[in-house]
């Protein structure tokens, strides 16, 4: 179906991986990768074009190479990767506007795939346990990446009104995790001590990076519409910290702003206010449509994806695994001894 595919954000980790996977499909004759810097990793037979999607020049590229499918992956979730929040917002919002304006002028476009995020659902105590695609947020994300995603989706909706002939697939990804990708969530769980909101233990739903690429591939030539992409099951924040072998320190939610700012300035991880909300209240996604409509089955559950990530990161502090195993060994020993004593008592009687 797709013949000439244009991928934006190809020099970022996920974009590059996706472009490379796309070139393995023989039915696609050309893959054009666009980004502002040359890709640092192998992108297969993708033709790299150095262009900024915030610049109208992108329209010329689309027209010249008669692109029929555009995969928009240049929506950046982590401000540190984009060079600050201002730059991140510019790339996300203005970049999407320019790209969609160029797509609207190009008659060759038949399909648009947008990598959106589950951040559009926000995170609040009044949320339903699982969001389906047609539910709106209970509290609109007011800042950061969530707000960008809402705006990006708004522009895509506008585009679909003006070009009804173009099929649009919008994928709302849960937090993507894996051994290779770096996001604010992976930075967070790489901290030697993980600060968690006091008295809250949110549910996290994750998707493995390979599944994210698989879902994008499936929707490049598959059905259109809005789809949630997430792994099965949930884990809680403290459970995740335990799996990563990190001790947790509870922080009152009111002090989280100060604390998050401190961590942000020290360059350890990126903590925006919406991230703190997310860590307090969590989010779950209903993936029925992913299975039935898109026909995609993720190969990693949430827990398996997180465990794959924890294998890639080391222990937090030297000796942490030793202390951990000593503690659990202590508990195990105690249980063992008690069991032995019980058996002895049973014999005596």
């Amino acid at each position: 179906m797709a013949d000439v595919v244009l991928v934006t954000g190809v020099s970022r980790y996920l974009g590059g991986q996706f472009a490379r996977a796309l070139t393995k499909d023989p039915s696609i004759s050309r893959v054009i990768g666009v980004d502002v810097i040359p890709p640092p990793h192998d992108i297969g037979r993708t033709e790299f074009v150095r262009a900024d999607i915030r610049n109208p020049m992108i329209g010329k590229i689309i027209a010249q190479s008669e692109v029929d499918t555009v995969v928009h992956m240049n929506v950046i979730a982590t401000p540190t990767h984009a060079g600050g929040r201002v730059s991140q917002k510019e790339i996300n919002v203005i970049g999407t506007m320019q790209l969609l304006a160029a797509c609207q002028k190009a008659p060759s476009i038949r399909r648009l795939v947008v990598k959106s995020s589950a951040a559009v659902y926000g995170s609040s105590p009044r949320d339903p346990a699982m969001f389906t695609e047609d539910m709106g947020p209970k509290s609109l994300p007011r800042a950061g990446f969530g707000k960008d995603s809402v705006e990006v989706e708004g522009y895509v909706r506008g585009f679909s009104r003006r070009r009804p002939d173009v099929e649009i697939a919008m994928l709302r990804f849960a937090n993507i995790i894996g051994p290779g990708i770096r996001t604010s969530l992976t930075d967070y769980f790489t901290l030697p001590v993980v600060p968690v909101p006091l008295g809250f233990d949110a549910r996290l739903q994750l998707v493995h990076e390979s599944d994210a690429i698989g879902a994008l591939l499936a929707s490049t030539s598959g059905p259109s519409g809005i789809t949630n992409i997430a792994g099965d099951g949930v884990i809680t924040v403290t459970q995740a910290a335990a799996l990563a072998g990190r001790p947790v320190v509870p922080v009152p939610l009111q002090a989280a702003g100060v604390f998050g700012g401190f961590i942000k300035r020290s360059g350890l991880a990126d903590f925006s206010s919406d991230q703190m909300q997310f860590l307090a209240f969590g989010r779950g996604l209903d993936t029925t449509r992913m299975r039935e409509h898109l026909g995609f089955e993720p190969s990693y559950t949430t827990r398996a994806a997180f465990e794959d990530f924890t294998r890639a990161i080391g222990p937090a502090v030297p000796g942490a695994p030793f202390v951990g195993s000593a503690l659990s060994g202590l508990a195990g020993n105690a249980a063992h001894v008690i069991g032995g004593a019980l058996a002895a008592a049973g014999r005596n009687r």
Binding site: G233, T236, Q239, A242, L243, G282, G284, A331, A334, I338
Partner: peptide
């Protein structure tokens, strides 16, 4: 003793994250 043993086993599962929660957070 039985209670103590099961409590310690519970503490161990908490420390290692060895438990599952369902979609609603039920543990």
């Amino acid at each position: 003793e039985r209670h103590l043993a099961s409590l310690l086993a519970f503490v161990r599962r908490r420390l290692t994250g060895d438990f599952t929660v369902d979609d609603f957070g039920f543990d």
